[in-house]
Amino acid sequence: MTEFALSAQLREESGRRASRRMRRGERLPAVVYGGGEPAQSISLEHREVAKLIEDERAFSHIISLKTDGAAQDVVIRDLQMHPYKPRILHVDLQRVKAGQQILVHVPLHFVGEAECVGVRLGGGQLHHILVEVEVSAPADRLPEFIEVDVAKLDKGQTLHLSDLQLPAGVTMPALAHGDDKAVVNVSAPRGAAEEAPTEEGAA
């Protein structure tokens, strides 16, 4: 497994003014909470966080957070972005321990698209309805992604959450609540459902 790490500094100042000064200095405010310990207000280097999240696996991996020489394991719980600039405004990090069951969103990786029966032979169009799913898994066994094989998907067919193959120990809360969302489907070719013109007035 790839190791992900961040370096943090404890911060004493809080509030909007302090946060604005921090961001002007290319750092961003963040908070660490959970694990039965008090929440900590910290600051992170914006460039370091921006580089980290370029890898989608960072959102479903344990991150080693080093603060004043001490390290703790965390996961990204929330990321606040600027509404129109490529800037991170705030990060929420949750402490985790090996074996602890946690919820994370993991990306879906679609495979077999070039061989998809409904597209290649049926002339249909493949539609990705979901690009990520929420899973529950032990913190030390978080999947980096969930693979979705669409090679045998025919036109008019849909794959749902219940059709996905999950690693051992990984579950999807949505299914426990009866919410079997559609993940991907193949629509019929445009115009295929149109009825043939009637021959009114034919002898």
Score class of each variant (00 low, 15 high):
I76Q: 06
K51D: 14
T67I: 12
R87Y: 08
A70E: 13
Q80S: 15
L89P: 12
P29F: 03
G35Y: 06
A71C: 07
G34A: 10
G35K: 05
F59C: 05
V74M: 04
V31D: 07
F59L: 03
K85W: 00
R47H: 14
H90D: 10
D73K: 14
L44S: 06
L79W: 01
V74H: 03
R57C: 01
S60L: 04
F59Y: 12
S43Y: 07
I63K: 00
S64A: 14
L89R: 11
R87D: 14
E45H: 09
R47S: 15
R47V: 13
P29Q: 02
I53A: 02
S64K: 13
R87S: 14
R95E: 03
P86Y: 02
M81Y: 15
A70L: 11
I88F: 00
A70K: 12
A50M: 15
Q94S: 10
K51E: 15
Q40L: 14
G34M: 09
D78W: 09
V91Y: 03
L79M: 08
L44C: 07
G34H: 05
V75E: 01
Q72Y: 08
I42P: 03
K51I: 12
E56Q: 10
Y33F: 15
Q40N: 07
H82R: 05
H90T: 11
Q72L: 13
Q72D: 13
I53H: 04
P38T: 07
F59I: 06
I42R: 03
R57A: 08
L44E: 09
V91S: 04
H90S: 10
H90R: 13
G36D: 10
Y84I: 13
Q80W: 13
A71D: 13
D68T: 11
M81V: 15
R57P: 03
I62Y: 01
P86D: 00
R95M: 01
A58E: 03
D68W: 06
L89W: 11
G34S: 10
V49K: 02
D73C: 07
G35A: 07
K85N: 04
K85S: 02
Q40K: 12
I62R: 11
R95G: 03
P83L: 08
P86V: 01
I62M: 11
I42Q: 01
Q80K: 14
S60R: 00
H46S: 15
A30F: 03
L44M: 11
R77I: 03
P29G: 05
K66T: 15
V74Y: 00
H82M: 10
L65C: 01
L79V: 00
P38H: 07
Q40D: 08
G36L: 09
V49G: 02
M81I: 13
K51G: 14
A50D: 15
L89H: 09
I63R: 05
G34P: 06
S64F: 03
A71Y: 09
V91P: 00
K85E: 02
D68L: 08
H90K: 11
Q94I: 05
Y33S: 10
V91W: 01
L52H: 09
R57Q: 05
Q94D: 06
T67L: 08
I53Q: 01
A50F: 13
Y84E: 11
G34R: 06
L52G: 08
D73N: 14
Q40F: 09
M81P: 07
I76C: 07
R47G: 15
S41H: 14
V31K: 11
H90F: 14
V31P: 00
